[in-house]
């Protein structure tokens, strides 16, 4: 239900996306893997226009949006129908956990404070952060902040949630709990596009894996295929450099 075609993006002379096309169906969990600089984060951020792609088209539900000259209406539409989880949590520093989650519900979806609070508390309960609803982000650990970030996105019930390397900024001990929460979200059947390095997560949860390198899609397929029977040499090289968490060679 999201289809990107021919996306191109350059930063000055550096071509970061060199004609990328991907398709994500309703309810699919798609993981995008790739080395730094492969363009995966830029691609993700183009979807909700945190980056502005130079050219290409996006088909979202029944809307067709041209990246070259997107209409302001369309940009706002995408931002209101997608959720985004930031690598560095991106919580509103001056608002409590509860206020962070309620903000979009009240200000964007125009729900009453009462209704918003109910929804927010339910979602916070699901991510295990209800206890801390009156805390400020500066009082929380990275893992806790990220869970709130996920709650904030989920609470708005978007059609698709975009995750930008959700665990890359976390201390290793905190990665596990955050991944558990993301898995939980995946189980609800919502469409997700996740940019990540976490291979075992991808194996567990992804319906499909896309491997990007140097601004193009190199290969895509089911996790099992990509991880154990990669067709492309570049994929093989990338995978060999990342040691899977459960592989322990004696």
């Amino acid at each position: 239900m999201i289809e990107l075609t021919g996306v191109k993006k350059s930063f000055g002379k550096l071509e970061v996306l060199k004609d990328v096309s991907i398709k994500v169906d309703d309810g699919e969990v798609v993981v995008i893997l790739g080395p730094s600089g492969s363009g995966k984060t830029t691609l993700l951020r183009s979807i909700n226009f945190l980056e502005k792609a130079d050219s290409g088209t996006m088909k979202f539900s029944d809307k067709i949006i041209n990246f070259k000259n997107p209409k302001k209406k369309d940009i706002l539409y995408m931002r209101r129908h997608t959720g985004f989880v930031f690598q560095n949590y991106g919580l509103f520093a001056h608002k409590t956990v509860l206020q962070n989650v309620m903000e979009g519900l009240v200000q964007v979806q125009k729900k009453s404070k009462h209704e918003a609070q109910q929804i927010a508390e339910e979602v916070l309960q699901n991510v295990g952060m209800l206890e801390k609803k009156d805390s400020y982000p500066s009082q929380l650990s990275g893992g806790q902040q990220q869970r709130v970030g996920i709650a904030r996105a989920v609470a708005l019930k978007p059609e698709v949630i975009l995750f930008d390397e959700p665990t890359s900024a976390l201390d290793p001990e905190l990665v596990g709990e955050t991944l558990e929460v993301i898995k939980k979200v995946a189980k609800t059947g919502i469409t997700m596009i996740v940019v990540t390095h976490e291979m075992s997560f991808a194996e567990d949860v992804a319906d499909r894996v896309i491997f990007m390198d140097g601004g193009v899609v190199v290969e895509e397929g089911k996790p099992g295929e990509i991880f154990y029977k990669p067709k492309e040499e570049r994929t093989r090289q990338f995978l060999s450099r990342i040691i899977p968490q459960d592989a322990y060679v004696i």
Binding site: R79, T82, F84, L91, A93, H94, E103, G104
Partner: peptide, 27 residues
């Protein structure tokens, strides 16, 4: 102000004006 505060506001659909008045100026 960290740039991510702007992005966080935009990402939940707050337009420029609301992001400024509800997220940026208070901080």
């Amino acid at each position: 102000i960290d740039k991510v505060q702007f992005e966080a506001g935009y990402s939940i659909g707050l337009g420029k004006f609301k992001t400024l008045t509800r997220v940026i100026y208070p901080q």
